[in-house]
Design a protein around this nucleic acid. Structure first.
Lengths: 151, 151
DNA sequence: GTCGAATGTCAAGTGGACTTGAGGTCAAGG
DNA sequence: CCTTGACCTCAAGTCCACTTGACATTCGAC
C-alpha cells in the first residue's frame, strides 16, 4: 500500500546492503530518505539505482567520498535525466577502461614474466619496478597508475 | 660494495614501498631479511621480485594473508624455480581473468544501461539487482562474483 | 489493545593495512 | 670526539567502511 516507498529492510534486501550501511550512506550524504510520522525511513524506488551505482563505483575502487561528489552532480531528489547519468557513467567508463587495461597488462606481465620463468632481474620490469624508476628519475612504475591508488 | 645485499631504504626506494611497510610485511612473514652485526636489515635482490608480486596481488584484491599463504608455497629463501613461480602466477592469472571479465561486464552494464539512459526499473538489472535476486530466490546479483568481495 | 518484529539513535568497536612517535643504536665523515 | 643520518623496537595512532551494542520507539498483524 505504500504507494512507492520502501522501508529500510526492503531496500536492504533488494540492494544486498545492510541496513546499517544504508544509514551510514545517508549520514555521508550519499542517499536520502523521507520519514514516516513515526520517524522510520522511507525510500523512493530510485534509491535502488543510486545504490547500484554506489556499489559499482566502490567496486571500481572509488572511495565513498568520490562517489558522494559524483552523485552530487545529479539533481538531488529529482529524477536524474539521461544526460545526468550519462555524464556520470562516462567518467566511470573511463575508469573502468583504465582498470581493465591495467589488469590486462598485469596479467600479461605475469604470463610473460613470472609465468614464463624469466627471472632476469636486470631486464624484468615486473621484478624490478624501482630500477626503472631510478633509471629515468621519475616515479614511474611498471604497474599502470589505475592500480596504484588505495591504502 | 655490499656484494648483493640491499638496505631497507634502498629496497623502499626501488620497490616504492615505505620502510615501515617492509617491516610490517616481515612481521607478517611475507618477506625476510638477514641482519648486519649491528642489527640492520639486509635484503637479497630477490626481495624486489617478491615485493612486486605482493604489490600485484594486493592490486588484484588479495589480502596480505592470502598473499602470505601463496608465497608460503615457494621454497623459503632459496631461489624459487620456474615451476614455483608458474604455479603461483597461474592461480593469480585466473583471478585476473575473472576480475577483468567482471569489470568488462560492469562497464558494459553501465554502457548499455546507465549510459544509454535506460531508466526502466522493471527491466534494468543494473538498477534492480535485488529484484532479480528476489525473483529467483537466490542471492544472485547482476554484479560478477569477483567484484563482490571486500568490505 | 497487545505483542513481536522492525526501526530509530548514538557511541563505541572492528579489521585490514599501514604510519607515526618516542627513545635508543650504529657507522662514517669532519 | 661529536654529529648526522639511516636503522632499530615497540606501542599506539590513523583511515576507511562499516558493524555492533544498548536502549527506546513504532509498525502492523491479530
Amino acid at each position: 500500500m505504500g504507494v512507492d516507498l520502501l522501508a529500510i529492510g526492503e531496500v536492504a534486501a533488494r540492494s544486498g546492503m545492510a541496513p546499517s550501511a544504508l544509514r551510514y550512506y545517508e549520514q555521508l550524504g550519499l542517499i536520502g530518505a523521507t520519514r514516516t510520522p513515526g520517524g522510520a525511513r522511507r525510500y523512493p524506488r530510485t534509491v535502488l539505482r543510486r545504490l547500484a551505482v554506489i556499489r559499482a563505483a566502490r567496486n571500481v575502487g572509488l572511495s565513498l567520498e568520490e562517489v558522494r561528489s559524483a552523485l552530487g552532480t545529479l539533481p538531488d531528489g529529482r529524477p536524474p535525466t539521461v544526460t545526468d547519468w550519462a555524464r556520470l557513467s562516462e567518467g566511470w567508463r573511463d575508469r573502468l577502461d583504465e582498470q581493465i587495461a591495467a589488469l590486462t597488462q598485469l596479467r600479461d606481465g605475469l604470463t610473460s614474466c613470472i609465468g614464463c620463468g624469466c627471472l632476469s632481474l636486470e631486464r624484468c620490469a615486473l621484478s624490478n619496478p624501482g630500477d626503472l624508476a631510478a633509471r629515468d628519475g621519475s616515479g614511474a612504475r611498471w604497474l599502470a597508475p589505475a592500480l596504484r591508488r588505495r591504502g
